[in-house]
Structures are given as structure tokens and as C-alpha cells.
Simulated assay, not measured.
Amino acid sequence: MTVTLQSPPLTENEDGQTRQVGIELEFSSLSSQQSAELIRKRFGGEIISHDPHHYEVRDTQLGSFDCKLDVRYAHPSEDKEETAKRLLSGWVEEEKLNNLLRRTESFIGDLSQGWVPTEIVGPPIPYPQIPLIDELVGDLIAEGAEGTESSWAYAFGVQLNPEVAAKDADYLLRHLQAYCLLSDWLRESINIDVTRRILPFIDRFPLSYTKLILQKSYRPTREQLIDDYLQYNPTRNRELDMLPLFRHLDETRVISQITSSLIKARPTFHYRLPNASFNKPGWSLAGEWNRWLKVEKLAHAKDRLSEMAAAFLQNQSKVFHGNWARMSAQWVEP
């Protein structure tokens, strides 16, 4: 059954253009090269090989795609090469050292295939084009790609990066509040894979942080909002990772607290919760996008948001005992 893609309450960004979304997919049983070939077949473009486990598909009808084995030790990096040269300088000639590094990376990549996912990072596209990526997912599945439910060891996910419609503190706070309030409902609705629950990549927001931002008296400036987020969430491992957005808005403030080179500044929410349920009948990216829009719709409905926040703060025992997901369903739009 085809899922009808829904539109967000605010369809345009601050420049009056249709909001975009970036999509990241994780799966197994297809190599990065095979994935790149399927992208080119579907959308055109030119395949560029960066290393045996990293391919780029440039100039497709949607933009450029990145396909790689999701393990950094299988790919060249400046940090790794600088470290090797520092340790082995005077012992190994530079050309031989570079050849050794390339062979080692290729070996690690070959060894990792089958238990480390292949990752496709798509270009920002206008959100109405999400069904085109669902067509690509269909191509991947037809060629044997396996998603989260294919093995207990496959902690694979989908990441949506919806462009923000505004950048003021009130807009950002309302979306954080809405997300925290709907987190339990989202997890129950998605039925998060057990392995993904155990691993730290989609950790919940601390209850202390949720209680702080839901207080009616909490009306921070954007600077205070970022500072409080960094204090309670000094990590990328959140189900809704705000660090890329906050780095885009105030790079100095963020990198003074968190130095990870993996945080890429971009004007988007970084929603990491969905499973990559490739082999589950009826699953689609359009459906996951529609589920994300529950957050945006709640954030847009200010009276409903305030009512739900008050109920959360007044029903701590039900929150603690896992009943909030069922309670919160009454505030979720059909």
C-alpha cells in the first residue's frame, strides 16, 4: 500500500523556498559500489571512486549521493595519516607508508562487510521528492539489501534531516518540547529494534532536561537554549541530535564545548530514531516522514503543546512507569 506523503505545517524556509530534507540509509548485503550503481541507474550521474569501500555519485537529477561502508577505519583520513607519519617518520618511506595505509584500510573494509552497514547519504531534496528515495529503496531491496529486522545484529537506522522553517528561539524550543513529549509515543509506534535500544546512538533526552524545557517559565534566548542543551546533552547520541543545527547557528558556542569532527553544521533537525525496516511490509520513508510531522504539528499547535507539557509535569508517576506513550496518544494528530 502506497503511503501518501504529508506536508508540514510550515512548508517553506525563511527564504520562501520549499523546505528540503536530507536522508541517510543504513543496510547490509549490498556493497557501496553496488549501491552506487543502483543510484546511477535510477537517477543518472557519474560514479567517483574514493577508495574500495567509498563511492560518490555526482550530478544525478537530485544532486550528489555518498555511498560507503560505515566504518571510518576503512577510509583515508588526514588525522590517521598524520598520526602514522608522526609515529613512523624515519622508519618507513612516505610512499611505502601510504601504500601500507591503503592496503590496511581495504583489508579492514573487506573484513567488516556483512556486519558493518553500507550507508547512503543523500543530497538535500525538496520534501515532496521523498517518494523518489522510496523508489531507490525498492531498487536496493530488489537487489538483496537487508534492513534492521533481518538479523538481531543489524542495528541499522534511517536518519531524516528536515530543514528548519525558522531559526528563532521560540520555534526551536517548541520543537524540542514537542519531541520530548512525543518521544515515548514515537518509540512505541516505531517499535525500536532491541539492538538499537541497547546501543547509545539514539539515547533519550535526560528527564531533568525534559522537565527544564517544559516549564512554563522557561523562555530562553537562543544563546541560553543552546547553552542549556550543551550542558544536559554534550553528545551526538540523542534521538533528535540538535548539535548540527546549533553548530550552524552558533559555531563558536558549540565547538567551545564539543570538539567532535563528526558534527557537521547544517540548518536541519537531525532525527535519528527510525529503524531501517527495508524488509517489513508496508514500510516507507514517506511513512517515517509523516511520523516525524507529528512533532512539527504539535510544535505548531501552541495551546495543545502547553496542555500536553502541563500534563507531563503533573503525571510524573505515569511517565516513570512507562505509561506516558499511551497517555500522550490523545494529543497526537490522526
Results as ranks from 00 to 15, higher is better:
Q215S: 12
K167Y: 08
I108Y: 00
Y218L: 08
L298W: 02
E24A: 01
E223I: 13
G44K: 12
L101A: 07
T268K: 06
N290V: 04
I255W: 10
I263G: 12
S260F: 08
S151P: 10
T252Y: 11
G109I: 00
A265Y: 05
T4G: 13
L293C: 05
T18S: 14
T11R: 07
K68Y: 11
S151C: 12
P131E: 01
A166Q: 15
T118I: 00
W289Y: 05
T148Q: 00
F27K: 00
S183V: 15
P220Y: 09
K41Y: 10
F312T: 02
N98V: 07
K167Q: 13
A265W: 00
A153P: 01
L100T: 10
S64W: 00
P206G: 10
S150W: 03
K216V: 10
L225A: 06
L5W: 06
A276E: 01
P9K: 02
S189I: 00
G45K: 00
Y271A: 08
L172N: 03
N290Y: 07
L199M: 15
E143V: 05
Y55V: 04
I213E: 07
N13Q: 11
D110M: 09
K264N: 13
K318A: 11
Q159L: 10
R196C: 02
G287T: 02
A155R: 04
R204S: 14
I130Q: 04
R72K: 12
I39L: 13
D203R: 15
T60A: 03
E78D: 14
E81L: 11
T104N: 11
A142R: 05
E81R: 04
T195L: 15
N99E: 14
D170K: 01
N237T: 15
R187L: 13
T83S: 08
S284R: 01
V21S: 10
L262K: 12
A265Q: 04
L245T: 01
E105D: 03
E146I: 05
I263D: 11
G114H: 00
P9L: 12
P281T: 07
M242K: 14
S183E: 15
A310M: 10
I141H: 11
I263E: 10
E288I: 11
T60D: 06
K297Q: 15
P52Y: 02
V3E: 15
L240R: 15
D303W: 12
W283T: 05
E163H: 08
H53T: 01
P8Q: 14
I108E: 01
S112P: 03
